[in-house]
C-alpha cells in the first residue's frame, strides 16, 4: 500500500516537474498577493499583530489557486478511469494528499521567506510555537483542500467554486491560526497555546478521517 501511494505521488510530481503548471502559477500568485498588500500599505508600517493575520490570507488564497490541480488535471486529461482501474480509492487519496502537502509546504516556506523580507514588523517572539502551528496549519489546509479538490473536479464550474466551497470548511482552522500567530508575535508560552495547538491537531485528524471515509463515494460515481 505504501509503495502504491508513493507511486501515485511520484506520478504527480513527475508530471508537475515536466509541465511546471502549478508551480509557476503559484509562485506568481504569491508575488502578486504580497505586492498588492505592499501597494495598499504604502509607506506606512503595518502593526505587528496585523501581519500575522495577513500572512494566513496570503496562504489561503495561494492554496486556493493551486491545490485543486491534482484532481482537475485528471478529469481534463481523461485519466481518471485509468487511475481508478489501477489503485484503490484510499491509495489515490493518500497519494494526492502527499503531493498537495509537498506543494503547500514548499509554497508556504517561500511565502514565509518573502513575507519576512518585506514586512519589517513581522517578527515572531515564540518561534518554536509558530513553527508547530505552521506545520499543523499546512497539514490541515492540505487535507481539507484535497478532498474538496476531488469534489470540484466532478462539478462543471471548477475555477470559481473551489474557494467558495473551501472557505467555510477551512474557517475554524484559519481562525485558530490567526489567533495563534497574533499571540506568537507578541510572545506566548507553550502552556498558553496548548489548547490552540490541540485544536489544529484535532482538525487534521477529523478531516483526514472524514476524507478517507467519503472519498470512495466521490471517486466511484
Amino acid at each position: 500500500m505504501t509503495r502504491q501511494i508513493i507511486a501515485v505521488f511520484k506520478k504527480d510530481l513527475l508530471s508537475e516537474i515536466r509541465t511546471r503548471y502549478a508551480i509557476n502559477s503559484l509562485v506568481m500568485f504569491v508575488v502578486i498577493t504580497i505586492s498588492v498588500i505592499l501597494f495598499s500599505v504604502g509607506n506606512e508600517s503595518v502593526p505587528a499583530d496585523l501581519t500575522g493575520g495577513l500572512f494566513w490570507v496570503v496562504v489561503f488564497f495561494t492554496a486556493m489557486s493551486g491545490l485543486s490541480r491534482v484532481f482537475v488535471t485528471e478529469e481534463e486529461r481523461g485519466t481518471t478511469l485509468t487511475l481508478r482501474l489501477l489503485a484503490k480509492p484510499a491509495v489515490i487519496y493518500l497519494g494526492k494528499l502527499l503531493f498537495n502537502n509537498v506543494l503547500i509546504f514548499s509554497m508556504n516556506i517561500v511565502i514565509a521567506i518573502l513575507y519576512s523580507a518585506f514586512f519589517d514588523t513581522f517578527v515572531i517572539e515564540s518561534k518554536e510555537i509558530f513553527i508547530i502551528a505552521f506545520i499543523l496549519g499546512n497539514l490541515g489546509i492540505a487535507s481539507a483542500s484535497t478532498v474538496l479538490a476531488a469534489i470540484i473536479a466532478k462539478a462543471s464550474s471548477k475555477g470559481t467554486l473551489y474557494p467558495v466551497l473551501s472557505f467555510p470548511i477551512l474557517l475554524p482552522l484559519i481562525l485558530t491560526l490567526i489567533n495563534l500567530s497574533k499571540s506568537c508575535i507578541s510572545g506566548t508560552s507553550f502552556e498558553e497555546s496548548q489548547v490552540s495547538l490541540l485544536i489544529l491537531f484535532c482538525y487534521n485528524v477529523m478531516m483526514i478521517a472524514a476524507s478517507l471515509l467519503l472519498f470512495d463515494f466521490i471517486w466511484k460515481d
Binding site: 469534489i151 478531516m207 476524507s211
Partner: peptide
C-alpha cells in the same frame, strides 16, 4: 457530491 460536501 452535495451529500459528501454536507458531511465534510
Amino acid at each position: 457530491l452535495s451529500a459528501v460536501y454536507s458531511l465534510i
